[in-house]
Computed example of a mutant assay.
Amino acid sequence: MRIARAALIGLGAALTAVAGVVFVLGVPARQWSGVLLWLAGAVVLHDAVFAPLVLVGTRLLRRAGAHVGWAQVAVVQVALVVGAALTLLAFPGIRSQQLGARNPSVLVFPYGLQLALAWAAIGAVTALVVVLIGLRRRRTG
C-alpha cells in the first residue's frame, strides 16, 4: 500500500509540474490573472455548492432507510460529482455567450442547452441504475 501511495503521489506531483510548465509556456502572462481567478472560483464553487449538494443528497438517501443500499448511494454520489464537473466545464462557455463574443464563430454550441441535456441524461441513467440495483437486491435478499 505504501508503494502504491508513493507512486500515486509522485505521479500527481509530476503531472502538476507538467501542468505548471505548460501553463507558464502556453498562456500569455497578461491572461494569468484571469485563469487563476477562474481556478479560484472553481475551488469556491466546489466547496460552497457542489460538495454540500453531494452531502445533502447522501443524507437524504440514507434517511430513506433500509430500502437504499450503499451501492445506490454511491451511484447517486458519482452522478452528482460528474454533473458538477460538467457544469464547471460548461460555465465559461455559458457565461461567454451571455456576455457576447467578439468573434461569433468561437462559441458555436448552445452550451446551456447541452448542459441541461447532460444533466437530464445523468439523471435518467442514475435513476435506471439505482432501480436496477434495487431490483437485484430484492431478488438476492
Rank of each mutant, 00 (worst) to 15 (best):
G69S: 14
A42P: 00
T16W: 08
S33M: 09
G112P: 00
V129H: 03
V18W: 12
F109V: 12
L53D: 10
V21K: 05
G100C: 02
A79N: 01
V131M: 10
G20Q: 08
L11M: 15
G123P: 03
V125T: 04
L113F: 14
V68P: 00
L99I: 03
A29G: 04
W38T: 14
L135E: 07
L61M: 14
R63M: 09
V35G: 00
F50V: 14
G134P: 00
V78D: 00
A121G: 10
V21F: 10
A51H: 11
Q114R: 06
H46T: 15
G65V: 03
V49G: 07
L61P: 01
A42D: 09
I133Y: 01
S105P: 02
G65I: 04
G12C: 12
V27I: 15
F109L: 13
V78E: 02
A118Y: 02
V21T: 10
A101C: 08
V24H: 10
H46S: 15
L37G: 07
L117H: 05
L135Q: 11
L11D: 08
H46A: 12
W38V: 13
A121C: 05
A79C: 04
L132Y: 04
V78M: 13
H46V: 14
T126E: 03
N103D: 15
A127Y: 09
A121M: 07
P52L: 09
V82I: 15
A79R: 02
A84E: 03
A124E: 01
G10C: 13
G65K: 05
P92I: 02
I133E: 02
Q114I: 14
R59H: 04
F23P: 08
A29K: 07
R95I: 14
V76S: 09
R30M: 07
A127P: 00
A48V: 13
V35I: 11
V24W: 11
L15R: 03
A121H: 04
R62S: 08
W119F: 09
G20S: 10
I122L: 13
S96D: 15
A6Y: 09
V49W: 11
R59V: 12
V44E: 05
S96K: 04
V81H: 02
G100T: 02
G57D: 11
L37M: 10
A19R: 07
G26L: 07
S33R: 13
A64F: 05
V125G: 01
G12E: 12
V106H: 10
S96C: 05
P110Q: 05
F109C: 01
H46R: 15
I9V: 15
D47Y: 06
A101V: 08
R102S: 10
V82D: 00
L11V: 15
V24P: 03
V82M: 09
A7H: 08
A14L: 15
L135S: 06
R95D: 06
V129N: 01
